[in-house]
Design a protein around this nucleic acid. Structure first.
Lengths: 167, 167
DNA sequence: GTTGTTGCAAATTTTTTGCACCCAC
DNA sequence: GTGGGTGCAAAAAATTTGCAACAAC
């Protein structure tokens, strides 16, 4: 997926690359090859990942143009700030997912295989607002994770589940 | 609040101390002064805390009978396993709350003052089951955190909110 | 007395930071 | 050319573990 940072183009429904470029420019930050490579890589496919995974994948793909661990962490923070990624915490470590061009959704988390399954319901926004109104709370977001055992793991084993349920 | 580990008593609606004692016994684990002190201290009042807070409080109260950091962590894990505490993650570190004698509830999290406000709704369990059924998922729990700005912080400042929204 | 527990120190894991060199603007 | 970025190594923060002394059973 080649994708330059086309700037000065249409400002409607831009790509994540363009959005990130706008964000960087608006802050006087620079568009570097590392940041380009990371955004491209991250938005090539939709799924959940953590910093370690990203570092491994990037290093595996571009052996000579590898990106350092600190830079990956710094860029992930910028992408969250830019509103392109969402971050949450699972088993005590940060997990990221696209927050761009993807409908709001929540997750089922299998405590056995660690898989995240997305689901969507229109009841949440309603509930969110109702609760917030009751408490004079100004909502900016929410995070719902339903934990349990997925269909596959239920079928595979009938052993005890992991005691480590750090959501 | 004095509270021994009265064993062999009624098995209905026992205290957290009793419940923990039962848990320990059932696993061949031992009832030690440290574990007693921790359970007593934790269930003296209802609120949210993290490991560091607990260590500070315990050390402040019992200067001579202080409890080491590793023991606090180990006991917290046991209390979670025993079903007496729930653990989740906020801003990248583990937060605990009672899961005993306290109705199921969820949280509003103020990203400014970091306060947790509890709320309760009977819609969640319904929603949870509906979603789970749809995905062949066996639910063991859930975690909903609605983030935003609480009434007080809204009143106090009209500045920007914290960019660090690691839920 | 046996076996699990504690405290210490050290290791691990995840993430951040200081700094000299480098590169986008 | 200049100010922000990168990579390195090292620090920080949170949590876990190995082990010898110790205490509950």
């Amino acid at each position: 997926m080649s994708s330059g940072f086309a700037l000065g183009e249409v400002h409607v429904s831009s790509s994540p690359q363009e959005r990130f470029a706008e964000y960087l420019q608006s802050r006087g930050k620079r568009i570097t090859s590392q940041r380009k490579a990371l955004v491209d890589h991250i938005f090539e496919r939709h799924d959940h990942f953590d910093a370690e995974e990203l570092i491994d994948n990037i290093s595996g793909a571009n052996r000579e143009n590898r990106i350092s661990r600190p830079t990956v962490y710094r860029t992930l923070n910028e992408l969250v700030e830019a509103g392109l990624l969402r971050r949450f915490s699972l088993r005590g470590r940060a997990v990221y997912e696209h927050d761009y061009g993807y409908p709001a959704h929540d997750h089922l988390h299998c405590t056995i295989c660690d898989e995240l399954i997305e689901f969507q319901t229109d009841e949440l926004p309603r509930l969110r607002e109702a609760v917030a109104r009751e408490h004079g709370f100004r909502v900016t977001g929410h995070r719902l994770i339903i934990s349990g055992i997925c269909r596959d793991c239920s079928a595979k084993r009938h052993r005890r589940q992991s005691p480590l349920d750090l959501i």
